[in-house]
């Protein structure tokens, strides 16, 4: 680790067009949030990739641990009744 006063890392989220979610596109360094927005604009929207930017300091993000994956996500695997195909309807009902 460096002991110098480095610019913090920011995670960048971009909405590519109206109606879509912001999506993580990468990260960059900036001294503060305002400059992070500028930098994100210059780095990640050079080819009309976005119309809205979120910046979040990387250290502010809490992530789930990969080793918890089995406990967190596998239990959803057998809940077939949450999906429409679980329910049998006669064809004459049409699209529902």
């Amino acid at each position: 680790m460096s002991n110098k006063k480095n610019w913090p890392l920011w995670e960048i989220f971009i909405r590519s067009r109206q109606g879509l979610h912001h999506k993580h596109v990468g990260s960059l360094h900036a001294p503060d949030a305002e400059m992070a927005i500028n930098n994100a604009r210059d780095v990640y929207t050079r080819r009309q990739e976005g119309i809205s930017i979120w910046v979040v300091e990387s250290t502010a993000i809490t992530a789930s641990a990969p080793e918890d994956g089995a406990a967190l996500y596998d239990p959803a695997n057998d809940k077939v009744y949450r999906h429409p195909t679980f329910y049998d309807l006669p064809d004459e009902v049409g699209h529902m």
Binding site: L28, H29, A30, N38, N39, D42, V43, R46
Partner: peptide, 11 residues
Amino acid sequence: PVLEEDIALTN
């Protein structure tokens, strides 16, 4: 002075 600014000035 830093890559981000290099890109900004070039824009």
